[in-house]
């Protein structure tokens, strides 16, 4: 049984409960009063329109629109600017809820696979936890080659002027490709994170069983 089928079975017609129990800060969703300030304050919604801005997502959750919410690209448009958080009259931690729903959709395999920010988000976390510190060159290269080698070269060429400017200013080091900055206690970091994932998984499973 896939991760998605397991939770879908368990929560059946109660998507709100599923979000409350499985999503970070999900228990805030029911507090939304549909004023729309979040949607009006969101820079990417303002510039290029989300499929479903935050206010709409909150109502869709209450209406049980499970498939539509978990498969949308919307949450991945969040730039983490925190405008919605500071303006929300009911103090919902909207940025964290958006990240939480996105993370959940990703975890149970419902998130749109090739959405570029979903891809970059995963890439960033792997990059920074691999050695304990970000390797900016490998991070950029990883993103350019997301859609294969040929597209990767094209993307690299398009970014040539930007990269060259940074190299000249000594803010991009090509040697990062062969190592780069890292923490000394990488082993400690790996085992500590492994433990953290174990604990988090067991807490989420307990909530589902309870």
């Amino acid at each position: 049984m896939s991760a998605n089928t397991a939770v879908a079975d368990k929560y059946r017609n109660n998507f709100l409960k599923e979000i409350e129990e499985q999503v970070e800060m999900g228990d805030w969703v029911k507090m939304c009063m549909q004023c729309g300030v979040c949607s009006g304050s969101c820079p990417t919604n303002f510039q290029s329109a989300w499929e479903h801005p935050p206010q709409e997502i909150f109502m869709m959750i209450r209406a049980g629109k499970r498939e539509e919410v978990l498969t949308t690209t919307s949450m991945w448009n969040c730039t983490s600017c925190y405008n919605c958080i500071v303006r929300c009259p009911r103090k919902l931690p909207i940025t964290h809820i958006m990240h939480g729903i996105a993370e959940y959709a990703h975890r149970i395999g419902m998130a749109p696979k090739m959405q570029p920010t979903r891809f970059f988000s995963g890439l960033f976390w792997k990059n920074c936890t691999h050695t304990g510190r970000v390797n900016e060159l490998k991070l950029s290269m990883g993103l350019y080659f997301k859609d294969g080698f040929v597209q990767g070269i094209k993307n690299g060429m398009a970014m040539q002027a930007v990269a060259l400017g940074l190299v000249k200013a000594r803010r991009l080091n090509v040697m990062e490709l062969f190592g780069g900055h890292k923490c000394k206690d990488q082993k400690g970091i790996q085992s500590m994170l492994k433990k953290a994932y174990e604990i988090e998984r067991s807490r989420k499973a307990a909530r589902m069983a309870g």
Binding site: G100, E103, A111, S121, F124, W125, K126, R133, A196, Y197
Partner: peptide, 14 residues
């Protein structure tokens, strides 16, 4: 070590 930044959210968990 790295703070994880806000963008790590897909894999970071809480």
């Amino acid at each position: 070590n790295c703070c994880g930044a806000s963008i790590g959210y897909a894999e970071a968990g809480e």
